[in-house]
Amino acid sequence: MTAVKKKRKTMSIRQQEAMTAYIFVAPFVLGYLVFTFIPMLFSIFISFIDFNRLGHLEHVLGGMVEFVGFKNFIRIFTDEIALEAFLKSFLYILYFVPGRMVFGLLLAVFFNNEFYLRKLSRTLVLVPYVTNIVAVTIIFAIILDKNGIVNSILKVLGVNDPPMWLFNASTVLPVTAFIGVWQSLALVVIVYLAALQGVPTELYEACLLDGASSVQKFFHVTLPLISPTTFFLIVNNVILAFSNFALIKNLTGGGPGTASRVAVINIYEEAFAFNHYSYAAAQSIVMFIIILIFSAIQWKGQKKWVHY
C-alpha cells in the first residue's frame, strides 16, 4: 500500500496574515455588533414607534406597535424638562471641558519638570481616576456638607451663610463638573505628558538662543506642537461630558429638583423610571446628533489651529 499524499491546499502568507487578523478582530466586531450596533439600530427603530409604556418586546418586534413618525422627536421641543436637560448638558460641558483641559495641561507641564517626589506625585494624580465613583461621591458629599470642611473654612474666613453646594440650584452643576474634573483628570495629564515629552528639545534650545521667555516658549512652541493632542482631548472631553452619567446619578441624582438633570439623566429617567422607551430613544438620538455636530464643527475648525 502506498500512501498517496494529497497536496494540501495552502493559503499564501498574505492570506494567512489576513485570516489571523480577521480572527483577532472577530471578538471585537462581534461584541460591537451585539452590544453597540444592533442596540443602536433598535433605538432608531423604537424612536419612530409608540413604545412609551411597559409591554413585551415581542409585540414591538412583531409590529404590533403604532408607527408614529417624528412624534417622539417633536415632543422633545415642547417638553420643558427635556429642553432644560439638554441646556444643562451644554452648561455642564462649559464647566467640565475647559476645567479638565486647563488643569490637565497645567499639571502635565508641572509633571514634565524634574522635582523631588515627582514619581509619587504622578501616582497620586492617578488615584482619583481609579477610585470607585460611589466612594468619590460619598467623600465629596461629606466635604461639601452644610457643616463640612469647605463651609467650616468659609465660616472661619467670615462667610456667614455658605451655600449647601450640592443642594443649591445655582451651585450644583458647576460643583458637580468640578468633582468630575478632579476625578477624571489623570487621563488628560497622561496624554498631555506624553505629548509634551514628544516636543523636540532643539526647539526650546533655539528659543533660548533667541531670548524667548518661558511664557513665549509655552505659547509659541509648546501649545502649537501639542495641538493635535489638544484637539483629540477636546473631542473626547465633549463626548465624556455629554455622557457623564455615573457621577451625576450618584452625586445628585439630577437634583435638587431638576437643577442637575442633564440630558443623559433625563433619558435614563424617561426610559427606566417612566417606561417611555420610544421617547427616551428619540432623546438619545438627538443627543447623538448634537455630539456629531459638535465633533464635525471641531473637525472643520481644527485646520485653523491644529498643527500636525
Partner: peptide, 20 residues
Amino acid sequence: ASQYSAIIKAEGENFITGAK
C-alpha cells in the same frame, strides 16, 4: 404613579431649595 412620584419629588425639592 411613578411619574407623579418623580414630579412631586422634583418640585418639592424646588420649593425646599427656594428655586420656586
